[in-house]
């Protein structure tokens, strides 16, 4: 029996949420066109030079720089591992796509963090903003990633820009949440101490709360980058280029070989980015101090 045949169910009002969304998007496309154009050109201006730069230098140079960074941040073992992994990717036919993906991930993450961290601060300092932001963040995180692509195409057409912007929206929430969490977790007594000596709110925030929240915020940065990487592949569906394209093509042609190569490239990129950003946070004096404090306790 179909749902609508029950007389009881027939009484339910029909909610044309889909239609409303469509008309809202229509309206936005028509009236906000110039804004979207401006946004698009900014994103474009950020991604393509970075893409060209990463693809302009020899692959060996990129591998060497990332491996050296890994060595410095985490020790020679990781440096060596990064060199081997990235070397493997460089030996496969998709180095160019890998670098495009890296460029997109970096731009999307940096933009996401530029929005997420100040938003996180606002949400941590303001109870009302927090109550407002929570459901929005929940929505952003639980909405299937593909759905972001649809309005992105509407507003920005096909290409890198909608891919990067959909990625930005998708990867932002953990940045906001972990910034908020980090700030809220700062020892109340230390904040009171700062206030008790007459420090104004901005000073308490910049010199006490943020430094102490930094390890948690860095976890947020790490999460944002990882989410951005996962989304950039999906963004291949809107022709964003990079590894997403490779994987989409392999999927449609059932090409196991190239699909696997693209997948491995994503994995290597993910591991390198994850470990690198993970260890950046530990290098701050406040993180070291807090770790020592925990160990001592």
């Amino acid at each position: 029996m179909s749902l609508r045949e029950s007389p009881l169910d027939a009484a339910l009002p029909r909610v044309p949420l889909g239609e409303w969304t469509e008309s809202a998007v229509d309206w936005a496309t028509r009236t906000l066109g110039p804004v979207f154009d401006a946004v698009a050109s900014v994103v474009e201006a950020l991604v393509s030079p970075l893409d060209q730069m990463l693809n302009g230098v020899p692959a060996v140079a990129v591998v060497a720089v990332l491996a050296a960074l890994g060595w410095w941040l985490r020790g020679w073992r990781f440096g060596l591992g990064a060199a081997v992994g990235l070397g493997l990717v460089a030996g496969m036919p998709y180095w160019e796509e890998t670098m495009s993906t890296l460029a997109q991930v970096l731009v999307a993450s940096v933009l996401a963090l530029l929005l997420a961290i100040p938003l996180g601060v606002l949400v941590a300092e303001n109870r009302r903003a927090s109550a407002l932001a929570r459901p929005v963040l929940d929505l952003m995180q639980t909405m299937p990633a593909f759905v972001y692509l649809i309005p992105a195409i509407f507003f920005f057409g096909i290409g890198t820009v909608p891919g990067v912007l959909a990625t930005l929206v998708f990867s932002m929430p953990p940045g906001v949440r972990l910034t908020e969490l980090g700030l809220r977790q700062v020892d109340k007594e230390i904040v009171q101490a700062a206030e008790s000596f007459g420090a104004p709110p901005w000073m308490v925030l910049l010199r006490t709360k943020l430094p102490l929240a930094l390890p948690t915020i860095m976890t947020g940065v790490n999460q944002v980058i990882m989410l951005a990487l996962s989304m950039v592949v999906i963004a291949g569906m809107v022709g964003a280029g990079g590894l997403g394209d490779v994987i989409m093509f392999s999927l449609s042609q059932v090409e196991v070989g190239s699909g696997f190569e693209g997948g491995i490239a994503v994995v290597v990129l993910a591991v390198v980015l994850d470990r690198l950003t993970d260890s950046v946070g530990d290098r701050f004096p406040s993180a070291r101090a807090q770790r020592h404090a925990r160990e001592a306790a």
């Binding site: 020892d187 007594e189 230390i190 009171q192 101490a193 700062a194 206030e195 008790s196 000596f197 007459g198 420090a199 104004p200 006490t208 430094p211 102490l212 701050f284 004096p285 406040s286 101090a289 807090q290 020592h292 404090a293």
Partner: peptide, 21 residues
């Protein structure tokens, strides 16, 4: 109030409340 705290009253806390960084 901030001026008063700066010039007139300071405080010592139970768990020291030093800035670890």
């Amino acid at each position: 109030l901030r001026r008063l705290r700066r010039d007139k009253v300071s405080m010592v806390f139970q768990h020291f409340a030093l800035m670890p960084h």
